[in-house]
């Protein structure tokens, strides 16, 4: 049985409490507060204690899906990426660069946010990038 504790930061509110994810045989099974974290110091809120429960939820998306009519079908990553790139490039040509926009996310990491805004700004030469900081 392989069991280890991984130190990470809570995915919910802005306090950023340190927590330990207990991983047993490749599955996150439990969450424990990280007593050494300078924020939280061994405390978690009700959501923090259940941070692991949604990770292995059966509803998780597992494959890229493309809309056919009003249902979705699985497609491969290559098709998905090329479809997205080609579609966005098509729109940019047809309606101009400013016709593309992007919503980044306060749930993603700093690195992902940086890449996202770089993708929109460098990729489509516009600044239509925002996230839900406004609400």
């Amino acid at each position: 049985m392989d069991c280890r504790f991984v130190r990470t930061t809570c995915p919910f509110c802005g306090t950023g409490c340190g927590m330990l994810l207990k991983v047993v045989d490749g599955r996150v099974v439990d969450t424990l507060p990280d007593r050494e974290s300078v924020v939280g110091r061994g405390h978690l809120c009700i959501k923090g204690w259940s941070a692991h429960e949604f990770v292995h939820h059966p509803d998780r998306l597992t494959h890229p899906l493309v809309k056919k009519g009003d249902s979705f079908e699985r497609i491969s990553w290559e098709e998905a990426i090329s479809l997205a790139a080609e579609k966005f490039r098509g729109i940019a040509e047809q309606y101009g660069n400013d016709a593309i926009g992007g919503f980044s996310s306060a749930k993603c990491t700093n690195e992902e946010n940086y890449l996202f805004q770089k993708l929109i700004r460098a990729g489509f030469q516009n600044n239509n990038v925002d996230h839900c900081a406004r609400l």
């Binding site: 930061t9 809570c10 995915p11 919910f12 509110c13 802005g14 950023g16 980044s104 996310s105 306060a106 749930k107 993603c108 990491t109 700093n110 946010n113 996230h131 839900c132 900081a133």
Partner: peptide, 8 residues
């Protein structure tokens, strides 16, 4: 409010 709204 959110874990990385400051970061975003």
């Amino acid at each position: 409010g959110q874990n990385n709204v400051q970061g975003a």
